[in-house]
Computed example of a mutant assay.
Amino acid sequence: MNEKALFQQIADGSEEAFRELFTLYMPQVYPMIFRMVEDADMSEDILQDTFLSVWTHRGKLPGIVNPRAWLLRIAYYKSLTALRNRKTHRKAAEAISAELRSPFAASTSEESITCKSIIRLVRQAVEQLPPQQQKVYLLSREKGYNIREIAGLMKLSEQSVKNTMVRALKFIRAALEKAGYSPLFIATVLFLNYR
């Protein structure tokens, strides 16, 4: 079946034609995405997002002149967007991490104001943690101790410290999500210096 006929069937709602399109193009689209982002998990997400866009906008498919080029272009732009987001998240997370290590650094840039806002949210969440979770979090993040050192200081098993840290991070993550930050950004901020 030619591509345009396949596109027409997908436009008509055929899931079987959609699966056929995925089988036909996945071996071409995935390697292109992976070459751009160099990350298998991100590549799979972009691949799914690309084909989701095809299905979501299937009403436009009959008007597409070159189906292969159109599909590759969608994947290309989604890959670029993902790379930009990753770079932005990494840059912000590094800035936040630096601010957390040096909370008295003077800066008036817009980026610094955003960082300080996030730091304030994190600190408010930390203040609401149960005492043991708060202590583990602060020893790790502000004092720079690793899991083994915290276990020794608090006379706990390393597994207990890990579990406590996971619960603390889960609570802080929920607070940041409630404030509207994306899960990827939050993961980068919270786990950037996790020891």
Rank of each mutant, 00 (worst) to 15 (best):
E3H: 13
E3N: 14
L6H: 05
F7E: 08
F7Y: 15
Q9H: 11
Q9L: 12
A11L: 04
D12A: 15
S14P: 08
E15I: 07
E16D: 11
R19A: 10
E20A: 15
L21I: 09
L21T: 03
Y30W: 08
V37H: 14
V37S: 15
D39C: 14
D41K: 14
M42Y: 00
I46T: 02
L47F: 04
Q48A: 14
L52E: 11
V54M: 10
T56W: 03
G59H: 14
K60R: 10
G63N: 15
G63D: 15
I64D: 05
N66V: 09
P67W: 05
R68I: 04
A69Q: 08
W70A: 07
Y77H: 15
K78M: 05
A82Y: 06
L83Y: 03
N85V: 02
N85G: 01
R86E: 09
K87C: 02
T88E: 10
T88Q: 06
H89S: 00
K91W: 09
A92R: 08
A93F: 04
A93N: 06
E94T: 02
A95H: 08
A95V: 04
I96D: 00
E99I: 06
L100V: 05
S102T: 10
S102W: 11
F104I: 02
S107F: 03
E111T: 15
I113P: 03
T114K: 11
C115R: 01
C115M: 09
K116Y: 02
S117W: 06
I118P: 00
I119V: 15
V122D: 01
A125W: 01
V126G: 05
Q128E: 14
P130S: 12
P130E: 11
Q132S: 14
K135F: 03
K135T: 12
V136G: 03
R141N: 10
R141M: 12
E142P: 04
K143I: 10
Y145C: 08
N146F: 05
I147F: 12
R148S: 14
E149A: 10
I150C: 07
I150Y: 03
M154Y: 05
K155D: 09
S157C: 07
S157D: 12
S160A: 14
S160M: 08
V161P: 05
K162R: 13
M165S: 00
R167S: 13
L169G: 00
L169W: 00
K170S: 12
A174L: 09
A174P: 01
L176W: 00
E177V: 02
P183F: 01
F185P: 01
F185K: 04
I186N: 00
T188M: 11
T188C: 09
F191V: 02
F191H: 11
L192C: 04
R195Q: 02
